[in-house]
């Protein structure tokens, strides 16, 4: 058996071991890598930063820990952006019963992080509302479009002092009468639930999205058509947003050159407080390693196949 034939029949456990080692090493050395964010990520950041201070935002969070490598980074960035802008937000899930609890955990961590940094503490019932889970995405989004007050009628929110209050009496929603009063809807998802939201609500409220790398290509047509105003895709999207939180768009300059340039918008400020680089920076190096490994695997596999064929041809 030649070396090429051996390579073609390499034990899969060796491949798995190589993957584990390569990926783990990258995680120990978070590095700031210069990048040019994707236009869709730039749109997302610009749209969110364009919101006036204290805007009201609906967040549909349809991810769980199965995709936390990407979605948790997205959600953390989103929470930091919301809190930086003093925006009030409502969050719920229309895809997975476990999703609201996962979001709660991340939210609590970001609130604690900001409190530790001496920044304003976001409070339930005053700054945000947790609406839980709605089992039917189609019906929920359709009704949100036709009568927002009725779809969340009788829902209660905790107050900072531990009591309960009708969500429509909270500072978050008291001035909202219909979906048109919402400044933006942001969908953080790992599934096609974004499609439902776009189909039912895109004409009534500006929608932006943070999706996984797998879901991203399916949402791109909606971004291109303008139905989704901004779109952060996958781990690259997480890092892109963090990179722009540090450098803004057409904002920070190094040696007379803007770090992130985009001719579609003017200056978009960077985030000047709290944590900016976080999970995206921690994982982005690893993404490089994993992709290089994947590309090498394809190349090596093909080289071995062709070499093996050639040897067989020579032998004949």
């Amino acid at each position: 058996m030649t070396i090429w034939e051996k390579m073609q029949k390499v034990d899969r456990r060796i491949l798995y071991a190589i993957l584990v080692v390569c990926v783990c090493v990258g995680l120990f050395f978070p590095t700031t890598i210069p990048t040019d964010p994707d236009p869709s990520s730039k749109s997302f950041y610009a749209e969110v930063m364009k919101l006036e201070k204290g805007s009201t935002v609906i967040i549909q969070t349809d991810w769980t820990n199965s995709t936390r490598g990407e979605s948790m980074g997205h959600f953390e960035n989103l929470m930091r952006l919301m809190m930086h802008g003093d925006h009030k937000f409502v969050f719920y899930s229309a895809a997975d019963p476990a999703a609201p609890q996962v979001a709660r955990t991340v939210l609590a961590r970001i609130v604690a992080e900001r409190k530790g940094q001496g920044l304003r503490e976001y409070k339930v019932g005053e700054d945000y509302i947790d609406l839980g889970f709605f089992p039917n995405a189609e019906a929920t989004n359709t009704t949100m479009g036709s009568n927002l007050r009725s779809v969340w009628a009788n829902r209660k929110s905790k107050t900072p002092t531990g009591g309960e209050v009708d969500v429509w009496q909270t500072p978050v929603l008291k001035d909202v009468k219909n979906i048109g009063d919402i400044d933006m809807m942001i969908v953080v998802t790992a599934s096609a639930s974004i499609d439902v939201a776009i189909q039912r609500l895109a004409q009534k409220v500006p929608i932006t999205a943070m999706v996984t790398g797998v879901t991203g290509p399916g949402v791109l047509p909606f971004y291109q058509s303008g139905q989704v105003k901004g779109l952060a895709i996958g781990l690259k999207g997480v890092y892109d947003v963090e990179y722009m939180m540090v450098n803004g768009i057409n904002d920070v300059e190094v040696e007379g050159q803007k770090v992130v340039e985009w001719d579609k918008v003017g200056k978009v400020d960077r985030v000047s407080e709290g944590t900016t680089f976080s999970r995206g920076r921690a994982y982005y190096g690893t993404l490089h390693v994993a992709l290089v490994l994947l590309i090498l695997a394809v190349i090596m596999g093909n080289v071995a196949m062709f070499a093996s064929r050639r040897r067989k041809g020579d032998a004949v």
Binding site: A98, L294, N302
Partner: peptide, 30 residues
């Protein structure tokens, strides 16, 4: 919830990476 269920959820999904690498090496042929 956090310590067991969610971690198992992540572990199950992360297995895909191993299959992708194996498939890239063995099946993605020109």
């Amino acid at each position: 919830f956090e310590g067991i269920y969610q971690q198992m959820d992540s572990a199950m999904f992360s297995m895909i990476a191993f299959f992708i690498l194996s498939a890239a090496y063995r099946a993605f042929r020109i």
